[in-house]
């Protein structure tokens, strides 16, 4: 008899539903990041989304920018050198703390409420920009909608957020990364293990997800990634 932790590892993953926008059924216990077999070196690449994000907030200082990739010296230096105030946290780690390794917990209303209170406890209209990176694609539908709704409240009108989603609609799990800003159009990605994607994201779904926001702009990259700039 295997211990519970080992059993959850060897449990087969749930079958993904191919229809866009429908949540996949993923076996409990499969949410935690899986270490890749080899430790990948950081990869640097250009990001049109990031370039657009900084283009949109150019010539303004003293903004409040949220960075969900966890505090890194590079991001702190880059954003504070532009004269902005940085709000930083490692949202993937917070998700693991709040929901554990069970994706089903992401439907638990009280846990979602706790997650939002501990991670997005800002007053309304506080943020002038948000770098969400790839975090949203690992959220189940209930958690995702609640998080986007909360972001809408805490972001100022005319502010921007940047988010990445895999463009591979057949992928059941994708690599999560930490993101460091190289310059205003370059990011350095470091792998943090693969995670199951909770939903399929295409342009139509994303427009629906950010329906309350003013506009959504997409950039499709060579790495099968949708970079999304959303204007509040």
């Amino acid at each position: 008899m295997l211990p519970e932790k080992l059993r959850s590892i060897f449990r087969p993953a749930g079958e993904p539903v191919s229809s866009a926008g429908t949540p996949r059924v993923i076996a409990p216990g499969s949410l935690a990041p899986r270490k890749s077999s080899r430790s990948a070196a950081p990869v640097s690449r250009q990001s049109r989304g990031l370039e657009q994000f900084f283009f949109n907030i150019r010539d303004v200082v003293g903004l409040s920018i949220l960075d969900l990739s966890g505090a890194t010296q590079e991001n702190i230096d880059f954003l504070t050198n532009l004269g902005h105030k940085l709000y930083s946290q490692d949202i993937m780690r917070s998700m693991d703390d709040a929901f554990g390794s069970d994706l089903a917990e992401q439907t638990n209303v009280s846990r979602i409420d706790y997650f939002l209170r501990t991670n997005f406890d800002y007053q309304a209209d506080t943020l002038d920009g948000a770098l969400l990176w790839d975090s949203l694609q690992f959220m189940g539908p209930a958690l995702l909608n609640a998080t986007v709704e909360r972001l809408y409240e805490v972001m100022r009108p005319k502010s921007y957020l940047l988010a990445f989603f895999t463009a591979n609609e057949r992928a059941t799990e994708v690599m999560s990364h930490s993101f460091r800003i190289g310059d205003n159009k370059t990011i350095v990605l470091t792998e943090r293990g693969s995670r199951p994607t909770a939903q399929v994201f295409n342009n139509r779904n994303l427009e629906k997800l950010f329906g309350k926001f003013e506009s959504v702009k997409f950039f499709l990259t060579r790495e099968s990634l949708r970079e999304v700039i959303v204007r509040r």
Binding site: G70, A71, T72, I76, K85, S88
Partner: peptide, 16 residues
């Protein structure tokens, strides 16, 4: 000024 090493956990705001 601020210095943060990899592996440190920080949650909050930074105002320089």
């Amino acid at each position: 000024r601020i210095s943060i090493e990899d592996g440190a956990l920080f949650k909050g705001s930074i105002d320089i």
